[in-house]
């Protein structure tokens, strides 16, 4: 379990996270949502250790992040898989080399074994015959799938995804959503997704944390988000007419 307690983060004296507390459980797809500037990315970067919070506790299965030494922190980072918004694949490396990269850095295994593992994860994300291609030769959706493959190649305990659907067509976005959810269940990992995409929220959000101006304004599941009376959440999630109608239909059916 990942526990966050009273997390504060500021930049140049401007507070961005103002005492966030929440938990993220194993085997669940957890989503962080909120308007631009609400602190989602900063929260994710604090969890990843890319930002150091001013106050508060982040605990990964009992290991308090800020109290870990450099070695233990590196060890923890090896248990984390991350899918960046743009994929963040290394342009100068082939797809195979990209996925092989964490194994080469941290796993002391024969190369043939590492290559087998690369092929296993590529198959898992439904990609074939791309091993020798470069990232620029693949479509956006395929790049995202390679990024997922790279994130899971080390068998992580924690998977973080920063807007995994941005820039993808709705069909590919759904494929990526389903893939992330399947992997979460299959590997029993803690997945945290930072998203703007309300389709994803409704589809795979087993726990949703809504941030507003740096505070945790609401949390619940994708079922509960239909029923919530929280004005800020309703304003944000049901801002489009389509979603308003979906909600009305849902509520009228469940009454």
């Amino acid at each position: 379990m990942i526990e966050i307690e009273n997390l504060y983060k500021e930049f140049d004296g401007v507070p961005v996270l103002k005492g966030i507390s929440t938990t993220f459980e194993k085997g669940k797809t957890n989503m962080i949502i909120g308007q631009s500037g609400s602190g989602k990315t900063v929260l994710l970067k604090c969890l990843l250790g890319l930002h150091t919070p001013e106050k508060g506790i982040i605990s990964f299965d009992g290991r308090i992040h800020t109290e870990l030494g450099i070695k233990e922190r590196r060890q923890l980072r090896q248990e984390i898989g991350m899918v960046f918004q743009g994929g963040a694949l290394f342009d100068s490396l082939t797809i195979e080399e990209n996925i092989l990269f964490p194994l080469k850095m941290f796993a002391n295994k024969p190369k043939s074994e590492m290559l087998d593992r690369v092929n296993i994860v590529l198959n898992r994300v439904n990609l074939e015959n791309v091993n020798k291609k470069y990232p620029a030769e693949l479509s956006g959706g395929m790049q995202k799938r390679v990024a997922i493959a790279r994130a899971i190649v080390m068998n992580p305990k924690y998977l973080f995804c920063d807007e995994p659907n941005s820039g993808l067509d709705p069909r590919t976005a759904t494929v990526i959503d389903n893939l992330i959810q399947e992997i979460t269940k299959e590997y029993q990992i803690i997945t945290i997704i930072n998203s703007h995409d309300m389709n994803s929220v409704m589809e795979i959000g087993e726990k949703i944390v809504f941030l507003q101006n740096g505070v945790n304004a609401w949390e619940g599941s994708n079922e509960e988000i239909f029923k919530t009376e929280n004005e800020a959440v309703v304003d944000f999630v049901y801002s489009s007419n389509l979603f308003k109608k979906v909600r009305e239909t849902y509520l009228s059916k469940t009454k």
């Binding site: 990843l48 250790g49 890319l50 922190r73 590196r74 060890q75 923890l76 980072r77 090896q78 984390i80 991350m82 960046f84 918004q85 743009g86 963040a88 694949l89 290394f90 342009d91 990269f101 964490p102 850095m105 941290f106 973080f160």
Partner: peptide
Amino acid sequence: GTMRVTEQIDALEVMGI
């Protein structure tokens, strides 16, 4: 610089490198 703006450096850091 390109690695920085395309988050490739962040990817290295997250991996513990």
